[in-house]
């Protein structure tokens, strides 16, 4: 009885091995190569090419495969946070929803910064008001100041930070520092000392002459 059970189990195990190996010979389960290569003719050197603006074979991206970011069948579909599929490279103006969706692609790797961004700890936010507009003026010492012109200055609606790609180049996200504005005033200039000195001198001379006059007058009497 026991022997027959072992025998059946052994036969089944051998059979299943054959099934798996026959499938693996067609394509690996992990990388379905044929799906992409049938359309794309990918040579494998893309990671060093200019399309990414970066050599992806060195640095932090060294361990990445194409399929970590791009999803079949075209390169224009990328994988975002939580396995969402995001279409990139669309030609027309991107809507706010589309930009929010594209943020997920960045968020897949830069999750901490993405969460900073969603909680307004990363990126600049602003606000708008009812029937208002923003005028940028070059003001004090050359600063570009956003002047909010509103009908009523009582109810402002906060506007969250812009999408990742509105500030960062997606292929070279490190931002270079901007120009530095002119020097600051450390302390307010003091009043002109000359005025103070001359004033004191005038008062002293007047007082002295008065005293002298009084003495002379007293002596005469």
């Amino acid at each position: 009885m026991k022997l027959s059970v072992y025998l059946v189990a052994y036969i089944l195990a051998v059979l299943s091995l054959f099934v798996i190996s026959s499938k693996a010979s067609e394509e690996t389960g992990i990388y379905p190569c044929q799906q992409c290569h049938a359309v794309l003719n990918v040579t494998g050197l893309v990671r060093e090419e200019t399309v990414h603006d970066k050599n992806l074979t060195i640095g932090a991206h060294r361990g990445l495969y194409c399929a970590n970011c791009h999803k079949a069948p075209t390169v224009w579909i990328m994988e975002g946070l939580n396995d969402t599929l995001v279409e990139i490279g669309i030609k027309d103006i991107h809507s706010r929803e589309k930009l929010d969706e594209m943020n997920l692609v960045c968020a897949k790797c830069h999750y901490d910064i993405y969460e900073d961004y969603t909680r307004l700890a990363h990126g600049n936010s602003t606000f708008v008001c009812e029937e208002g507009r923003i005028i940028n003026v070059a003001g004090y010492k050359g600063v570009i100041y956003s002047f909010h012109e509103c009908k009523e200055y009582s109810k402002f609606t906060p506007v969250p930070a812009r999408a990742c790609v509105e500030c960062h180049n997606p292929h070279n996200p490190t931002m270079e520092p901007l120009s530095i504005l002119p020097k600051q005033n450390y302390v307010a200039p003091t009043p002109k000392q000359d005025n103070v000195v001359y004033g004191t001198l005038a008062v002293t001379i007047t007082a002295m002459s008065l005293i002298v006059l009084a003495i002379i007058r007293g002596e005469r009497r």
Binding site: Y145, F147, L181
Partner: peptide, 22 residues
């Protein structure tokens, strides 16, 4: 980056005196 934009925008926003450089 020490660009001082905050300091000067603050002057504009808060109607600070322009002569004695507060």
């Amino acid at each position: 980056i020490g660009c001082r934009r905050c300091a000067y925008a603050c002057v504009m926003e808060n109607n600070t005196d322009r002569d004695i450089g507060i």
